[in-house]
């Protein structure tokens, strides 16, 4: 599966890449929202890992754009600013999951596998009626 990681912090991009590649994912890294939207036009991603606080456009803006054009791609929100209001906001924007930075490799892999599992269950439920 191809995963797009969007974060303006190089260390976070690097860490996600190391963790996800070690688990067999194909990882694309971008430092901001505009680059993320460009990448999404070229590649088909199975999952997005998005930071909220970024210069220029923030993660909430990216989520709105993605929900408009690619509503089926699950988005995991990462935030180094995990206050109650931020989490509520992410839930309202229909984020598939929320992960507070910093996270351990296991926490990241666990949350990704939960989201993928949920997506698969959702697809199996829908397919009999198709």
């Amino acid at each position: 599966m191809k995963i797009l990681v969007v974060d303006d912090e190089r260390i976070v991009l690097d860490s996600c890449q190391k963790v996800l590649e070690a688990d067999g994912f194909e990882v694309y890294l971008v430092p901001g929202v505009n680059k993320a939207l460009q990448a999404m036009k070229k590649e088909g991603f199975g999952l997005l890992l998005v930071d909220i606080k970024m210069p220029e456009h923030d993660g909430m803006y990216l989520m709105r754009e993605v929900k408009k054009k690619w509503p089926d791609i699950p988005i995991i929100v990462m935030s180094g600013y995990p206050t109650t209001n931020t989490i509520e906001e992410a839930v309202k924007m229909q984020a598939a999951a929320f992960i507070a930075k910093p996270f351990t490799p296991d926490e990241l892999l666990e949350i990704i596998s939960q989201v993928i599992q949920k997506e698969e269950d959702h697809e199996t439920k829908q397919s009999p009626s198709d």
Binding site: I11, S15, K18, V19, K53, G80, P102, F103, T104
Partner: peptide, 23 residues
Amino acid sequence: SHELRAPLAATVQYLEVILGGMA
């Protein structure tokens, strides 16, 4: 949030990757 927590979180992120044996 930006000058204290963010760099601290990024540092811990690296430590976690190092501890996970990925470096």
